[in-house]
Write a protein that binds this DNA or RNA. Sequence first.
DNA 1: TAATCGTGGGC
DNA 2: TGCCCAAGATT
Length: 315
Amino acid sequence: MAEKELAATAMRWFDENARDLPWREPDVGAWAILVSEVMLQQTPVVRVLPAWRAWLARWPVPAALAADPPAEAIRMWGRLGYPRRALRLRECAVAIVERHGGQVPTQLDELLALPGVGTYTARAVAAFAYGQRHPVVDTNVRRLVARAVAGEPDAGPATRPADLVATAELLPVEPARAARASAAFMELGALVCVARAPRCVDCPLASMCAWRASGRTAPVGPTRRPQRYAGTDRQVRGMLLAVLRETTGPVHRDRLDLVWDDDAQRARALAGLVDDGLVEPVGEAYVLAGDRHLADRRIPGPRPAAGPEAGVDPV
DNA sequence: TAATCGTGGGC
DNA sequence: TGCCCAAGATT
């Protein structure tokens, strides 16, 4: 009972307060929605907006992206973070061309089988692009349901099957309305029922919120967060990739040496980038994956190559 | 299950 | 300033 009421109230609020996001326009196709969902994985909306427009202007259909080398996708990804997503999105485009005739598949299991598409993204596409009735559970929805329904101050660290079940029970029966309810829950979680300082004063669900009814109990223990960034391999990877991204053609390793002092850590980070398929070694230099054809460009380095360069020959 | 994987803005 | 956090996926 209260469940239906929750969705109905959230949707009424959504009618008046939804942000004007371009991927919510009615004529937006499944590919554009899929691209937005991947970009929005752990990346704020404001940073995604321009990247999404540029990406779709260049690759309006999956086949277009599939036809370009990974390096182009990595560059276009810019500074959105987690560049493996760019790689996977391109692999995703390849899979869509090979397995689905260039059309984003409609079935949940087919979507889940795509590279870089997990529990959340598959359901988001099925619901928002195709109007199917699936629970769409992201961090916002989990937090909102944990508070409003379970009366807890926060959700657990990862999405579990039980989260999908709990959210599914809140959704209206009619598929299109269910999808809209999911969007409304997400928006409420993103704008009102936020993590740090929830704005219960502005929340339409306040009167039916279990957490608020309990007096907004505090979290039990300090939720551990091993998130540090400074000095990690992640930071070094980011700095190395930034240099490669902004350079056309091979970057000599002596140049990459300038990026980070710790030899062992720098080597580890670089090896990781190669291992992930983001970067390729070319002789004594490195390029973004798929840019080996630029190896005949002059490689900036202190020592001009004498004789035929080892390892530069195309395979 | 928990760790890993970028980046930048807000407080 | 340093920490928290943002529409997760993968191993």
